[in-house]
Design a protein around this nucleic acid. Structure first.
Lengths: 168, 168
DNA sequence: AAAGATTGACGCCTCAATCTTA
DNA sequence: TAAGATTGAGGCGTCAATCTTT
């Protein structure tokens, strides 16, 4: 396998091992905090955060792109959140085939309660251990990789759809 | 919430969104490639890679630390791989309570076949889109975060236990 | 045919309970 | 009591099938 770079250099290998450890352990840590504090996982949090920023609701397919999940996954998760009264589904006014997802008043209260603890956890796990320069490097590195692993999200972000829960 | 930095700056937020997209999409992409090519997931691959580098086998608990998973997860995964003839379990010669996991000859042939495609995928998704400088930045950034999210792995790596499958 | 969405079966992982040996 | 490991139940996500509307 001559041209095709059969294996990684020792530097690449160290980076790879640490990256694999990161992508395995960081979601686990975020899930653990949210599960203990609020009984939801990080995917459900992202969905709620996205819905918080869209008072008119989001179509299920847009919510799926937004939270980086399949249509099926979003549908199942919406069912769980709906049972808890945190979200609501209505027909889409524009397209009769589509369904529009909304956050409820109770869901909003829930997020106001949960978000600060989650943000603290994000700081503790990531930003507190990085320098400002490293935060910039991380943004560019993750941006490059995501271009390949999640091109649709990459495009959404480049087009200015910035999904942020503003906690206030 | 004055002192406690209630939310993220816009730079931190961009980095966070991209990082979340990364940790969600990269494992999914690696799982997809391995599942299509070899019928295993990335966690099972990591276990097999670790066992490849240890001809005398590894205790289950060491294998768990190594692959960043719980004892239960490793036990279930070993059961699946054992059914396919890729690994073997023997009593540990030193500690009668412990179990030692080994890769079989068939498992070794399997990895020789599967590893190149997986490495190509790692290159395609990560290293091909990063500069050498960014690979170094990534190593340091991931190393910092992992210190918090997976301190045990961090310690193992610092102590020189470098788990690499050398493909040859 | 194809887009938007849902459903149920199956697979993997977590959690708590259990077993064995120290 | 605790360490090492296994087991089974239950939860979440994937996949394929399905339904409706265009």
């Amino acid at each position: 396998v001559p041209d095709d770079a059969p294996w990684l250099s020792s530097e690449e290998l160290r980076a790879w091992i640490l990256l694999m450890t990161l992508v395995e352990s960081l979601p686990a840590a975020l899930d653990a905090q949210l599960r203990a504090a609020a009984g939801i996982n990080h995917f459900e949090y992202q969905m709620l955060a996205g819905l918080c920023d869209h008072p008119d609701g989001l179509r299920m397919s847009d919510l799926a792109a937004f939270a980086t999940g399949s249509a099926s996954r979003v549908s199942h998760a919406m069912g769980r959140l709906e049972r808890r009264g945190l979200v609501r589904r209505t027909p889409d006014p524009d397209d009769p085939r589509a369904v529009r997802a909304h956050i409820t008043a109770e869901g909003r209260r829930f997020m106001v309660e949960v978000a600060p603890g989650h943000v603290r956890e994000a700081r503790r796990l990531v930003f507190d251990v990085l320098t400002p320069a490293q935060v910039g490097q991380l943004e560019r590195i993750a941006g490059r990789v995501v271009t390949v692993t999640a091109p649709d999200v990459s495009r959404l972000l480049r087009e200015g759809m910035v999904p942020a829960f503003d906690a206030g």
